[in-house]
């Protein structure tokens, strides 16, 4: 099974981003997704900078995929998506149907992101026919549903790589409203990129102190960190070929190393507790509420 590094979902400074990816050059990840997927106002790296970074990572032997903005509204946002789709070098992950149309129209292969809502074989077949070569299942899909779907797809002769969101705070929703700017009492149009103060998002707890969600600008993430490495055997059996690890500011190298070693059978240990700052969970995969933690063995 291969490992991928998902797109950076947080706002970091240019230096922090460059340092983070410099450390990844030698890490055992096979695929790296680059680009801004959450908010078009985040511009630590311009489009050309992302592409340049992509060349460096490709030089280090990684497959580089450019990931598009998930919520595309303004004309300027659509123009950026158009430019990324026509980058001419790298595979593109389409995170909305507008990007799908641009890529399909240009006859380019693409990765279908989790927000495309592909829940059944008819949907997979349709996008396979339009150039989708890899897909990320909807984040809420359970092991049983994924098994049904991949089994049916195989029987129907639909050839696609499947990549599952395996590690990180789960991006659960996006809005036109910026919840981080709202928290500090600023209108979105004058946000001053306040989200950069929260390199791992802003935790939101219940009034009893239970961590529930994480505010990340216009995106709402889970409070807990999803961690599916304990299901490694089941994932391989299902036919999942790539596990996606979502960037966090610290200990990313250790987490990647743990996933690689456990999947290779070089290490029986699957725990990552000491490297994360929130509880772990795997509810969606087990067909339970997403926030549910794995029962003790």
């Amino acid at each position: 099974m291969r490992l991928s590094l998902g797109p950076l979902l947080y706002q970091w400074s240019r230096d922090a981003i460059e340092a983070f990816y410099a450390e990844r050059m030698a890490d055992p990840v096979d695929v790296v997704y680059l680009g801004e997927t959450v908010c078009a106002k985040r511009r630590s790296l311009a489009t050309d900078d992302w592409l340049a970074l992509g060349r460096e990572l490709a030089g280090a032997g990684k497959q580089v995929v450019i990931s598009t903005l998930a919520l595309v509204q303004a004309g300027s946002e659509l123009a950026t998506v158009r430019r990324l789709c026509r980058n001419g070098e790298f595979l593109v992950e389409a995170n909305d149907m507008g990007a799908v149309r641009l890529l399909a129209d240009a006859g380019l292969p693409f990765v279908g992101g989790a927000s495309l809502n592909l829940y059944n074989v008819a949907a997979l077949r349709l996008l396979r026919g339009r150039g989708m070569v890899r897909w990320v299942p909807p984040l809420e899909l359970s092991r049983d549903d994924l098994g049904d779907l991949l089994g049916e797809a195989r029987r129907a002769g639909i050839v696609l790589e499947t990549e599952l969101f395996a590690f990180g705070r789960v991006p659960l929703a996006c809005s036109a409203r910026c919840f981080t700017a709202r928290h500090v009492g600023r209108p979105k149009d004058r946000c001053e990129i306040v989200c950069e103060d929260y390199p791992e998002g802003l935790p939101m707890a219940s009034q009893e102190g239970e961590p529930l969600f994480t505010l990340n600008g216009v995106q709402t993430q889970s409070g807990a960190v999803q961690h599916l490495l304990g299901h490694g055997g089941a994932l391989a059996e299902l036919g999942v070929e790539i596990l996606r690890l979502s960037p966090q500011p610290a200990h990313m190298g250790e987490i990647i190393g743990r996933y690689r070693a456990a999947l290779d059978g070089a290490c029986a240990e699957t725990a990552v507790d000491r490297w994360v700052t929130a509880p772990l969970c795997d509810g969606f995969f087990r067909g339970a509420p997403g926030m549910a933690a794995a029962p003790d063995p």
């Binding site: 998930a70 919520l71 927000s115 809502n117 984040l139 809420e140 789960v170 659960l172 929703a173 996006c174 809005s175 036109a176 529930l212 969600f213 709402t220 889970s222 509810g283 969606f284 067909g287 339970a288 509420p289 997403g290 926030m291």
Partner: peptide, 14 residues
């Protein structure tokens, strides 16, 4: 939240 892209209820209730 953008409709069709909101998993807050799924996260909490399944």
């Amino acid at each position: 939240m953008v409709e069709g892209r909101c998993l807050l209820s799924a996260w909490t209730t399944g």
